[in-house]
Amino acid sequence: MSVIRKEIQVKLQEIFVDLFDDDGIVISNDTTAKDIDEWDSLMHITLMVTVEREFGIKFRAEEIGQLKCVGELIDLIVERKG
């Protein structure tokens, strides 16, 4: 895993723990909404808004709807950060 991806994952880990209010969450590239009980439509969009704020980026409507796992989210952040 590249350094940039690792840094993004660490930051995402903090966001997840904070947002889902659960210290036990450990994210990986394969983590999906099924792995976290409270990850519903509302938490998904709230997560996206928080990521947009924290990383200073913007997602498209279609991207938000099509994200399947944390790995894809990291790919998208890497792509958007250029």
């Binding site: 509302l42 996206m48 409507a61 279609e62």
Partner: peptide
């Protein structure tokens, strides 16, 4: 899914 992508998500984003 359509309503989530084109109505609910933009609305929640705006409210945020």
């Amino acid at each position: 899914e359509w309503f989530r992508t084109y109505f609910f998500n933009p609305l929640v984003k705006w409210l945020n």
